[in-house]
Nucleic acid binder design. Structure first.
Length: 550
RNA sequence: GCGCCGAUAGCUCAGCGGAUAGAGCGCAGCCCUGCGGAGGCUGAGGCCGAGGGUUCGAAUCCCUCUCGGCGUACCA
């Protein structure tokens, strides 16, 4: 990446100046290369002289002049200028810019790839919604975020595994089992009340109905305490099936569906507790077994095993993370949770550390919850309340591409009001269609020029301001990928996609591609092909389709 | 109470230490007898929640406050 090259070039220039005594031997601050905002500030800029001024006890402009004199510019850079109050502005050479078009065409769908990961293994665990109900619109946000992040990391040279953690153990399952049982019995006219903290949602009746259809009334003859888990098991399977279908429609495939129950079956949960005990982090108090998380920065201790002998969700989660980090040995594990699990973060970090792992190997991403707005009213979401809008409804109403684009575009930190009516009303002017249209347009041009071989197109003919602007915009993709991978934040991608689409449309409006001028035609076709590849790569990272025609 | 997150154009949101604060939608104009007008161009519209501080420089960092979301269980 040219950005890294400029960083190195500046570093060497400072070093040389220090060696020659033109600059004092102070510690050099991090060299940041940024994209200047205004016109006329070049393609890249650095404020390094400003940052050095204080400790060097020299005027920023003087430092800038010294660095500029010492710097050895790569061929890509046509000029470097010093600008008040102490910026260094780089201008890219248009010959080099044109050359990048060839590079992009050669890279094709691979364009944008950077090697940050060096093949290190990263696991992204996301969605992981309880299989006690359908996915909600809120889960859709975690789904879009997680999958896009996985795509970005993969593009950035990591070996990525996508995992869905199925919470099919614990006392919420008891509540679920009892709920399905009640609806099942009621279906056949029996009088069994929904359990006290059961699931009131209508979908439980749908599940019970489905089981009644496939299995008949056979569970009525089974003692209740045996029938409940059997019915619950069938219910979970049905719901997981639906969850897979929803995710599939969003273009999300998990490499692994990891069942919490398997940890109990293999004795991993008690093993984890014993592991913590051996490490000296377990204490018995009030009849329960506690994890001493307060000694590791959490503000309170946490129960691992209740006084009734039943392990908490936290205990199995400890075992789960031991499995991820210790047994499967991922170099990095990224958990993506909704804001309602935010309180779980400090103890999870603490338990990972207590088990002897470097806590930096675990990153927990929290995304703020989604408020669904319908008829101007916020719909409170939650499977326990039975009041929620399903992902399915949103998918049916707005379509998967718009859902993904919209969900990925928001910073995870920002709470989000998803107005269904608005999303529907806006769907025909949705930014995603604007970007997809740009891609289809490149497809249309190339189809029209099928019989023209533009392989030897001369890129030095691309000199219109809109052509150069488009090339510059395409060159940003690898930087965006690198930044997104580093920050674990894919949300700049949709914004970039829009800018790229605008650059294409502007070019299209100013420059006719297919003309009598064979040479210009070939050069521009090559530019269009490069843009098509860049758009497709960007859309792929977001997880939406890149249609050939619309 | 304490902790985490948010507050930027009429609306939905980017920007999160740099040079005149951006985009989409909406609004007001303009551009088609040429490759897909689901397009392009121009304009109006901002005490960047409030107040202090740090810095050559703050929407961006620190402190206080206001409002909103979430968390603060032997729930998950």
């Amino acid at each position: 990446m040219i950005r890294d090259e400029l960083r190195q070039v500046l570093g060497r220039a400072v070093e040389a100046a220090q060696k020659d005594g033109e600059l004092p031997a102070i510690a050099v601050p991090d060299i940041l290369i940024e994209r200047p905002s205004g016109e006329g500030h070049g393609d890249y800029a650095s404020s390094l002289p400003l940052k050095m001024a204080r400790s060097a006890r020299m005027a920023p402009m003087t430092i800038a002049g010294i660095i500029a004199a010492k710097v050895e510019l790569p061929a890509a850079v046509a000029g470097l200028e010093v600008a008040a109050p102490g910026f260094l502005n780089f201008h890219l050479a248009s010959a080099w810019l044109g050359d990048q078009v060839d590079q992009i065409v050669a890279a094709g769908p691979d364009y944008g790839r950077v090697d940050l990961g060096g093949g290190r293994r990263v696991q992204v665990e996301f969605v992981s919604a309880n299989p006690t109900g359908p996915l909600t619109a809120g889960n859709g946000r975690g789904a879009a975020l997680g999958d896009s992040l996985a795509r970005v990391l993969s593009k950035a040279g990591y070996q990525v595994q996508r995992e869905y953690y199925v919470n099919d153990a614990g006392n919420q399952m008891d509540a679920f089992n009892g709920s399905v049982y009640a609806r099942y019995v009621q279906r056949f006219g029996g009088a069994v009340e929904l359990p006290e903290n059961g699931y009131p949602g209508d979908y439980i009746q749908t599940v019970a109905e489905a089981i009644a259809t496939s299995h008949g009334r056979q569970f009525l003859d089974v003692p209740a305490e045996e029938a409940k888990p059997m019915l619950g098991r069938l219910g979970v399977d049905l719901l997981l099936q639906q969850i897979r279908i929803d995710l599939d429609q969003l273009g999300i495939r998990f490499d692994e569906w990891f069942h919490e129950e398997s940890l109990f079956e293999a004795g991993k949960v008690s093993a984890a507790v014993e592991h913590l005990r051996a490490a000296g982090y377990v204490l018995e108090r009030e009849g329960a077994t506690w994890f001493a998380s307060s000694t590791l920065g959490d503000d309170r201790d946490n129960v691992l095993i209740r006084s009734n002998g039943v392990p908490t969700y936290f205990a199995s989660d400890a075992a789960y993370h031991q499995n991820k980090l210790g047994e499967r040995k991922f170099d990095k594990v990224i958990d993506i949770w909704g804001a309602d699990h935010q309180g779980h973060v400090p103890r999870m970090k603490a338990v990972v550390e207590a088990m002897g792992f470097d806590p930096a190997r675990l990153a927990v991403l929290i995304y703020q919850l989604v408020n669904l707005v319908r008829d101007g009213q916020v719909v409170r979401m939650g499977k326990r309340t039975g009041q929620f809008v399903t992902l399915r409804e949103v998918l049916d109403e707005v379509g998967p591409d718009a859902v993904r684009f919209f969900m990925v575009a928001r910073s995870p930190d920002a709470m989000m009001d998803f107005d269904l009516d608005l999303a529907k009303a806006q769907s025909d002017v949705n930014p995603v269609y604007y970007v997809q249209y740009a891609h289809a347009r490149t497809g249309g041009i190339l189809r029209r020029a099928e019989n023209i071989d533009f392989g030897d197109g001369d890129v030095t003919l691309l000199i219109d301001s809109s052509e150069l602007a488009l090339i510059r915009k395409m060159l940003e993709l690898p930087e965006i990928v690198a930044d997104a991978a580093q920050a674990l934040a894919p949300h700049p991608l949709p914004h970039y996609a829009q800018e790229l689409a605008t650059a294409l449309h502007t070019f299209y409006d100013r420059c006719r591609v297919i003309t009598e001028d064979a040479e210009t035609t070939k050069a521009r076709l090559k530019l269009v092909a490069a843009c098509k590849a860049t758009l497709a790569a960007t859309l792929d990272l977001i997880g939406v389709g890149a249609p050939e025609q619309m």
